[in-house]
Structure formats: C-alpha cells, structure tokens
C-alpha cells in the first residue's frame, strides 16, 4: 500500500513538523517514507507545503504529480494545491480558516474546525494535530498508536500537560475522521 499526502498551510501552522512526525512514525512502523518540504523564503506567513509518501515498498520517485490526500490548513493553500489532489482523493479542510466552497465533485471532503479544537484543548498553535488525527482516523495509513507514541516522544522533555493537550487534540480529529469513514 502506498499513500501520498500533501500537507499545506502557511508558515507557522506546523505543516512541516506534523509531516515529519508522520514520516518518523511510518519508519517506526517499518514502512518506507519520504518527506519532501517546499517553502518560500519567508520565515512566517508564506506558503508551506510538504509531501509525505508512506509505502510498504521502496519509494522510487519522491516527486509525484498528484496526491491521494490533501490537508489544507488555510484558504490560500487550498486554492494553491487543490489541483494536485487526484480524482477521487480525500480533502481534509480546516474549516476555522477555509470558508469558500470547494468546486470539485470528485472528492471526499472531511471538514473540521482545527483552530477551534486546538484553542479548546489549550493552545492555538496545535491546529496541525487534529488535522493529522482526522487523516489517520479516515485512512488507516498508519496505526494511530504508533503516531501518538512518536508525538509523545517528541514532547518528552516538556511538561505532561503539553503531551495531554496534543493527545486530546489528536483524538478529537481522529473521531471526525472515523465518523467520516463510517458514513462513507
């Protein structure tokens, strides 16, 4: 099985860090993974995109033309990268920031207010976490336990409430993904 995921948003939304955590988790699960970032010269506010490929077999090209899933953290990135989502693909939208309608009929769309979820559990900075949660809840691309372990290790030196907050944000997103799967 091979899954091509694009995560996109603006600099500072955690696009790269969540992509790396996902790729690290895939390697832990003994899968092949490539993480390919693409960003402009800006430190914050510019467009940020990463392509993560996770596969049971060796990955030949890390530069696919289309992805299976697109995570759009904001309006601008949805517009910019929607064309790279394959027909029949899955679009995961941060509805806290994306308000305009998606004019494609050939997609499965999962929508969740990631900024609001993040704020509710304690930090506006972790809107990336419910988004990846929804992805893993919907796709089975990876065992969610393995991802959560990697996330926990990442924050090992931080106070326990940081880990708890991230886990909570993940579970909220994961539930949205699972519900979408049940309705599919």
């Amino acid at each position: 099985m091979k899954n091509i995921l694009i995560i996109s948003g603006s600099g500072g939304q955690g696009v790269m860090s969540i992509g790396i955590t996902f790729a690290q988790s895939a390697v832990k699960a003994e899968k092949f993974a490539t993480f390919m970032p693409l960003y402009g010269p800006e430190q914050r506010g510019g467009s940020a995109k990463c392509t993560v490929i996770v596969s049971d077999e060796e990955i030949i090209s890390p530069l696919p033309s289309k992805c299976d899933t697109l995570i759009a953290m904001n309006e601008q990135s949805l517009k910019k990268f929607l064309g790279e989502l394959a027909p029949g693909g899955t679009l995961i939208i941060n509805s806290s920031r994306v308000t305009s309608p998606v004019n494609r009929e050939d997609l499965r769309i999962i929508s969740l207010p990631a900024d609001d979820i993040a704020l509710k559990v304690g930090s506006a900075k972790i809107a990336n976490v419910p988004m990846i949660g929804a992805f893993l809840g919907y796709t089975n691309a990876l065992d969610s336990e393995i991802f959560l372990n990697t996330l926990t290790e990442k924050f090992a030196s931080k106070p326990p409430q940081i880990i708890e907050m991230n886990q909570q944000a993940f579970q909220e997103g994961f539930a949205v993904g699972q519900a979408a799967k049940a309705n599919a």
């Binding site: 790396i20 993974a33 390919m36 970032p37 890390p62």
Partner: peptide, 9 residues
Amino acid sequence: GCLGSIMES
C-alpha cells in the same frame, strides 16, 4: 536542493 531537504531512512 531536493536531496538536500528531503527526509528518508
């Protein structure tokens, strides 16, 4: 630059 910034095992 692709190989410089890509992550793989």
